[in-house]
Design a protein around this nucleic acid. Structure first.
Length: 822
RNA sequence: GGCCGAGUGGCGGAAUUGGUAUACGCGUUCGACUUAAAAUCGAAUGAAGAAAUUCAUACGGGUUCAAGUCCCGUCUCGGCUACCA
């Protein structure tokens, strides 16, 4: 017998799969399989960023889950789409280019080639004819097309907003480039700077994004995170009239009201002051000569404050504007303050402060000695010991609403205020519009150009893609623009456009947008590109998307809100435009855990505790052991620590599978009785069910039990074929080799319920819930309750533990258990 | 501070609907094979006890014939979030 040699057989099968293009989901050049009546399954992992370091064990876990499912469903005779791609835009490639001068285009090509080679060595059942790469002009042409669709509908727009800015590097920084309030490159403290930026109007879909979460077969953890991120709050918008300063002469057209958002309109009688965010545009109208300097200083300090400072320093700060407003409920004049505990980006950027019933307002009022007026009576039975009561109760000090329950008062107050024209119900979201412009070179160019007056002109669809120009120096320029601005030939061009004033078609000199799109834009539609990856005339083919999409199972370990929310947003948008026949892109989401180093810590280069999956293969274990081990390591959705010794255990197990198949001494060819029939059928059922439930670890352990049993009893041909088929999703090379040796087909086996029970069963006998005896009866006797109870009570050890009378005997057929209550 | 998880042998973990707690793997010990070692094969392995048995699923209560599983309280750890009015 030849020894199990993974090196040899894995190479053999990988070569075969390569030449035969085994895993193509459709005939060559086609998007769809021939038989469209066969059920389909579309599986994908979150496509990786192809880093120079190559695959790590985390990738392997993620991709192997998809691969097990792809191979399982293939064996179940379904049409399986299992494509692959690379998310190639991003900072590492750009930084690498700045450091080495090697272009991101070049580095990406090299890294993809390395990734592809490594993926093939893992034996993944990938349809390589659909490989995509987001930085390929043939791909990002359609990313730009998507952008233009959103632009056409007003969902891609520009507005001024505050962004992180590094004053040393002269560049805008994304949130992930700000570390502890400092620039990740130079370490200098960052500031907020007002800049004109591009946004996608995701808030337009806030309500649907929230309500459809309920229908998703996604982990609760992710669903909760998305709900919190969207952060819907129902409340009211209330207008407070500003008291104009008597000394000021002019009655200009300046706004006379300050709008606030509150979820507790029932407490309006207790609003004793207003607070505006430092960025609030009306502040300049509220200050007077006495307060102006102090307020302006506070505003500019607030802008400089780093995120960390704001987080650490919860001590309230603020300044009085010098102006007053009228509480519409009480008619009292209340002071208007400015404080950074009010955020400009949420609600109206202004609040009515009710210090008696809001902890933050309470702290502020205490610090600045502002009045605190109770308007909700704490119920007597309340055990709330907080310094201010924020629960429900009866209204007090609230005029005509005294005595009303606070919960009822909310609606009454809003109705009352709206009759006076100073209030209305309002729903507010924490979610903001999605900032998409990046001052970076290595991203998808935004297909927009400007004339001298700054008017926007979309690049016509037939002129896409706007290709990234080659440059020599990848650093951003000193105006905060990306290196794209350095490609002078590219930057300006002439185009026929409709003049904004005259409406005539004129040829104009235009300047291109130098911002590129956030990488998340590129990954917001790639799942649909997979269905017709080489379509030259559409982003995706409507027939192909109708058959294959939405994605049935999507597997990843990251992007709980960002990517997984953006992809839902685009799906709903393109459904509304008639491009997609469904409104949710992913039916089932599997969110796998991380693999940590043997010491339980995160793997990292600096700690030197990284396990390289290719090393594991090359040590002699092979890809099948690596894959099976990572499925066996624990529940797929939990973090796990790498254990080199356990890898050896899985290798031993695969060796035993090999031996059963290739060592004739282990087999019993002439056996008359099918001795292993019960465990064989049980194993088929268990593995099938476990894969459906994504319990990959217990699927593997039940195969181990089966093999242990076959070692005791010797294996029949059918035992070996069944083992080969069941193990193939995990260890595809070994499974294929075994099936070849047995000259078997590759159809997933089915179990027969009638073989799941053996002739005799063991009945557990308890006395008062404690195990006292086990009796063996024939399976038919399970129906005869009286007989079993009699047998149970006759057991010596059972009798011994019955002190007096038998009060009751409980027989549970399904659990094969008798409990004697004595 | 808020929300959500989790706590089972020496270790990773299993127990799917409340029904034999500790499957499977690692480690350890013993045995077989071998001149020897590795590999392989077999056996044992929650704790205490000679045994019968008793005690064990973070801790304290409760419901139930029966609780790792359900309920109440406490502790610990992890994740997310963080002045969202």
């Amino acid at each position: 017998m030849d020894r199990y040699n993974p090196q040899e057989i894995e190479k053999k099968w990988q070569d075969k799969w390569e030449t035969e293009q085994t895993f193509c989901a459709a005939p060559k050049g086609k998007d769809l399989p021939t038989d469209l009546n066969t059920p389909k399954v579309f599986l994908a992992e979150m496509f990786p960023y192809p880093s120079g370091a190559g695959l790590h064990v985390g990738h392997v876990r993620n991709f192997t889950i998809v691969d097990v499912l792809a191979r399982f469903y293939t064996q179940q005779q379904m049409n399986v789409l299992r494509p692959f791609g690379y998310d190639t835009f991003g900072l590492p490639a750009e930084n690498y280019a700045i450091k080495t001068g090697i272009s991101p285009q070049e580095a990406t090509k090299t890294n993809i080639a390395n990734f592809r080679k490594q993926l093939k060595r893992l034996g993944y059942a990938i349809d390589w004819s659909r490989e995509i790469n987001t930085s390929d002009p043939d791909y990002y042409k359609w990313t730009q097309w998507c952008f233009l669709q959103l632009y056409k509908k007003g969902l891609a727009y520009r507005k001024e907003s505050y962004q992180w800015w590094c004053p040393v590097d002269q560049t805008v920084l994304a949130n992930e480039q700000v570390e502890n309030g400092c620039c990740w490159r130079c370490g200098h403290e960052v500031e907020k700077k007002k800049m004109k930026q591009w946004f996608f109007k995701i808030t337009e879909y806030a309500d649907e994004l929230l309500s459809d979460i309920d229908s998703l077969d996604w982990p609760d953890k992710i669903k909760t995170m998305q709900r919190n991120w969207i952060g819907r709050s129902e409340g009211a918008e209330i207008e407070f009239e500003i008291v104009s300063e008597k000394s000021e002469k002019s009655e200009k057209s300046e706004p006379k009201y300050i709008k606030v958002f509150t979820t507790r309109p029932d407490t309006v009688f207790g609003a004793t002051f207003l607070v505006l965010a430092p960025e609030h545009p009306m502040i300049k109208n509220l200050v007077n000569d006495k307060t102006r300097n102090e307020v302006e200083k506070y505003q500019s300090d607030a802008l400089k404050k780093s995120e960390i400072e704001r987080q650490e320093n919860k001590e309230k700060t603020g300044v009085f504007t010098g102006s007053y407003a009228i509480n519409p409920a009480t008619g009292e004049e209340i002071p208007i303050w400015v404080s950074d505990y009010v955020l400009m980006g949420y609600g109206e950027g202004a609040i009515m402060a009710v210090p008696a019933h809001d902890e933050r307002d309470y702290d502020f009022a205490e610090k600045f000695d502002l009045p605190i007026k109770e308007v909700i009576e704490k119920p007597e039975n309340s055990d709330d010991t907080e310094k201010c009561y924020h629960g429900e109760g009866k209204l007090i000090n609230s005029g005509h609403l005294n005595g009303t329950d606070s919960a009822d008062a909310r609606e009454l107050v809003v109705n009352w205020l709206s009759q006076q024209g100073v209030g209305k119900p309002k729903v507010t979201y924490k979610m903001r519009d999605w900032l998409i412009s990046r001052q970076r070179y290595w991203g998808c160019p935004i297909p927009i150009a400007y004339d001298e007056d700054g008017n926007e002109y979309p690049i016509p669809e037939d002129q896409l893609p706007v290709v990234i120009p080659e440059v020599k120096d990848y650093k951003p320029d000193n105006t905060g623009r990306s290196a794209l601005a350095k490609a002078k030939d590219w930057l300006t061009f002439e185009m026929e456009v409709k003049d904004k004033k005259t409406g005539k078609i004129v040829r104009k000199k235009l300047t291109r947008e130098t911002d590129t799109l956030d990488g998340y834009a590129c990954s917001s539609w790639y799942l649909w590109r997979y269905v017709s990856a080489h379509d030259k005339s559409h982003a995706w083919d409507s027939k192909a998307v109708k058959y294959w999409a939405p994605t049935d199972i999507y597997v990843g370990a990251d992007h709980a809100v960002a990517h997984l929310l953006y992809i839902r947003f685009w799906c709903k948008f393109f459904a509304d435009q008639g491009y997609l026949p469904f409104r949710e892109p992913v039916k089932t989401l599997l969110y796998n855990g991380y693999i940590n180093a043997p010491d339980g810590k995160k793997m990292s280069k600096s700690k030197g505790n990284v396990i390289d999956p290719l090393d594991v293969i090359d040590q002699g274990y092979g890809a099948d052991t690596l894959r099976t081990y990572e499925m066996f390591i624990g529940p797929y959705d939990q973090d796990a620590a790498w254990d080199p010794k356990s890898v050896g255990g899985v290798y031993r197990f695969l060796n035993r599978c090999w031996t059963l198949c290739f060592d004739e001494k282990m087999q019993d060819a002439k056996a008359k009785a099918d001795k292993n029939r019960v465990i064989r059928h049980k194993t088929i059922k268990k593995v099938t069910d476990d894969i459906h439930r994504h319990n990959f670890n217990t699927a593997v352990s039940s195969l181990m039990e089966y093999v242990n049993e076959l070692y005791k009893e010797k294996a029949s041909k059918e035992d070996i074929i069944t083992l080969a088929k069941l193990i193939k999703p995990f260890a595809p090379h070994l499974g294929s080799e075994m099936l070849e040796k047995m000259q078997s087909d590759d159809v997933w086996p089915v179990w027969d319920e009638k073989y799941l029970v053996s002739d005799t069963v063991e009945i557990v006998v308890q006395v008062n819930g404690k195990l006292r005896a086990k009796i063996s009866v024939s399976t038919d006797d399970l129906e005869d309750q009286e007989k079993i109870e009699k047998l149970a009570l006759a057991e010596e050890n059972v009798k011994k533990f019955i002190p007096g009378e038998v009060k009751k005997v409980i027989f549970v057929k399904q659990a094969k258990l008798v409990n004697v209550v004595a």
